[in-house]
């Protein structure tokens, strides 16, 4: 290393910089994000009997149960498309949100030992969690693609697939999952029982997120509540995804805009709170 090269000056001023995020540093650690994603899949593969098959088995079984219970037994509408297909879109999208949200929210709880020993930009962990969710979603989408092709070939007059709405759905769930998760992660450093609130709250949220019903039907049967559900970002995302692939559902531009703005705010606040929490959660001894 030649002596003449002077590395750039870096500065940290506390407490003024307590909310500052070093994006350049995060970029420098991009390999770590990828390594953490790889570790997750590698461990899952090694520690389970069925390995990656689990990723496929889970949504398929859920799809069968949902179809039997909600569509055969309770006779909910699936908007004219086969109920299994209808449910699978909801289940996969919901699963992506749930895993991202819970994974991100447990950042500090699960990595306390690591964080107390070595420095790296802490945002790496939630980003890896999000990456894991995305890849898993892509992998699981294989089943959906199979069913979808089968359906498309046997049915006439199916609306064309809409990339725009599907991308919007994935983006919205990413923002909601990562943003909400970051917010929860920062709160969990103060209140440890929030972990149970999160797992229970997520369970409840599933029933409010149009996973196995359409927002139109919800509004028709429960007008008071159904109108509010239209603004639930997760419901909006799931409806958008179903609209993109199956041509059922209804997403108004207004609801989409409200959900998107809401998620944007949550994400921004989440990143900010996370960065503050990261700087003092280890200070209690």
């Amino acid at each position: 290393m030649p002596q003449s090269v002077v590395p750039p000056l870096r500065t940290l001023r506390m407490p003024y910089d307590s909310g500052k995020i070093d994006w350049w540093e995060l970029w420098r650690y991009r390999d770590l994000i990828w390594m953490l994603v790889r570790r997750d899949f590698s461990l899952f593969y090694k520690q389970t009997l069925l390995g990656p098959l689990w990723y496929l088995l889970q949504p398929v079984l859920t799809m069968l149960v949902f179809t039997a219970v909600f569509h055969r037994m309770a006779e909910l509408s699936s908007g004219g498309v086969p109920a299994p297909l209808f449910n699978l879109v909801g289940i996969l999208m919901w699963g992506f949100f749930r895993d991202t949200f819970i994974g991100v929210s447990e950042t500090f709880v699960r990595h306390q030992a690591l964080f107390s020993k070595v420095y790296f930009p802490r945002l790496v962990v939630p980003l890896a969690e999000w990456g894991i969710g995305l890849i898993r979603l892509g992998f699981q989408w294989i089943i959906l693609l199979g069913l979808w092709l089968f359906w498309v070939m046997r049915t006439d007059g199916i609306p064309t697939f809409q990339w725009g709405w599907f991308s919007f759905a994935v983006l919205l769930l990413s923002m909601a999952g990562v943003g909400g998760g970051l917010l929860m992660a920062s709160l969990m450093t103060k209140y440890r029982d929030l972990r149970f609130v999160v797992s229970f709250g997520v369970q409840l949220l599933m029933f409010l997120s149009a996973v196995f019903y359409t927002l139109d039907e919800a509004a028709a049967r429960l007008p008071a509540m159904g109108e509010w559900l239209r603004y639930n970002p997760v419901a909006v995302a799931i409806e958008s995804a179903r609209w993109a692939w199956l041509g059922v559902g209804s997403v108004s531009w207004e609801a989409a805009l409200v959900a998107f703005t809401g998620c944007g705010v949550v994400l921004a606040v989440g990143i900010y709170r996370f960065n503050r929490a990261e700087k003092d959660f280890l200070d209690t001894i």
């Binding site: 000056l9 500065t11 940290l12 506390m14 407490p15 307590s18 107390s116 420095y119 003092d280 200070d283």
Partner: peptide, 18 residues
Amino acid sequence: RITYPTYGTVRWRGRIAS
């Protein structure tokens, strides 16, 4: 930078390994 100072300024040049 495993932990942050409550007050004060840290300036450094180059990569830090611990």
